[in-house]
Design a protein around this nucleic acid. Structure first.
Lengths: 222, 222
DNA sequence: TTGTGTGAATCGATTCACAGCC
DNA sequence: GGCTGTGAATCGATTCACACAA
């Protein structure tokens, strides 16, 4: 597949792994490695080498047969694909514990993302300064010139849809939702969901599976 | 498929959606609904009705044809499947901003999960009281009788593997990893990863895709 | 000889469509 | 008549295995 043909249609599953590859490559570069095989990079990223090679083939990537990949070159290519050559503006709505933790998180501001605004519906929080930014009302957000590229929602569940509607009206087209609620948004808005309680429940499922089933028919619960 | 046959092998993808169904059912029950169709429940959970029915069929679920599902009964069945009838103990390692936010998060302690211990490698944090618990050293954790069921890692990336090794030695068999690093653990330990920077990068990819490609050959980066 | 890139085969998950039951 | 439960069809993602380039 040529690089140009690859431009449309990188599979979602592949996109979800690109950040991991990029991280592994960055770590390798810092250790001074200049060339890396699919086997090594896959191990560092937690996937199989065949998967890595297939993923990279979707980018029209260019390794060297018999040798491997140039670390810097591949890192630049993936960063480009992910849009990390630009800087993306981020607004965080909801400054409870989680929102504050995210505002302070260096992984956000560190790599291509800049938090440009903070907002909260709670009037006792509005006006506070968090990480050097004044917490605004949702209404005040509209006064910014160009809308932020990404909105992060860290409000309670019952406010999440309202906030999402507001962000969409503002022109935000990508939303990262930490509230445990299903958001409905127009088709052209991308939403990703991080649900902490859900993660624990999934682990609980596996934990429960270890135990030999004690009750022969749990499905008999009334 | 009978309920008994369903006991082995609920697909991972299905397990990942069960918490969403349970949440929607709980919300319905609170609004006083006693019966719900696959169409309604699917809409509230953000999936298609055919998917919901297929998922429930893996549990050997029992709705009523022509009517729908009994809300309380189905909620109890899913909660049972997820192991939420037991209470699971949780230890959080790493009490930076994120660890503290999680310690305070009601979604954790709220539903079947109890934080029983907190630990940190930083001696300036050890001894502090957070959410009513004294922050311990990793070594002190070993003194608890039965190991916690679930370990949550919210340390910097470079300590995550060390902490994971320690938790595994303690007997922890399920790990929720917020550090941006690949953990290697024995096969019988379940790991789930939540990577905040990765989520933003995936959104950046989609955001970038909206823009018409400005440079005809970005792959020419040297 | 080594390790990429990729067709072919496999595996799993989603959707369709309808028989069967209330 | 309406809605579940489920085989069959489809779709997508992963893995295999090897031709080919360096």
């Amino acid at each position: 597949m040529t690089a140009e043909a690859a431009r449309r249609g990188v599979p979602e599953a592949t996109v979800g792994r690109l950040p991991a590859y990029l991280r592994a490559l960055t770590a390798s570069a810092e250790r001074g490695t200049t060339s890396i095989s699919s086997e090594e990079l896959a191990a560092a990223s937690g996937v199989r080498s065949s998967q890595l090679r297939k993923d990279l083939s979707h980018l029209g990537s260019y390794g060297v047969r018999g040798v491997g990949y140039d670390v810097d070159r591949l890192a630049a290519q993936i960063a480009g694909e992910l849009g990390l050559t630009r800087e993306w503006s981020v607004v965080i709505v909801g400054l409870g514990n989680l929102g504050r933790a995210l505002a302070a998180y260096s992984g956000f501001s560190g790599r291509g993302f800049r938090i440009v605004a903070l907002a909260d519906a709670d009037s006792s929080i509005v006006g506070e300064t968090v990480q050097g930014l004044r917490v605004q009302t949702l209404q005040e957000l509209a006064l910014v010139g160009t809308p932020p590229a990404i909105g992060v929602i860290t409000t309670p569940a019952d406010q999440a849809q309202l906030v999402a509607d507001h962000l969409v009206r503002l022109g935000v087209r990508s939303i990262l939702n930490f509230a445990p609620s299903v958001l409905s948004v127009p088709d052209d808005v991308a939403v990703r969901k991080v649900d902490l309680a859900m993660e624990l429940q999934i682990l609980a499922f596996h934990e429960q599976r270890r135990m030999p089933a004690v009750h022969p028919g749990r499905e008999g619960v009334r």
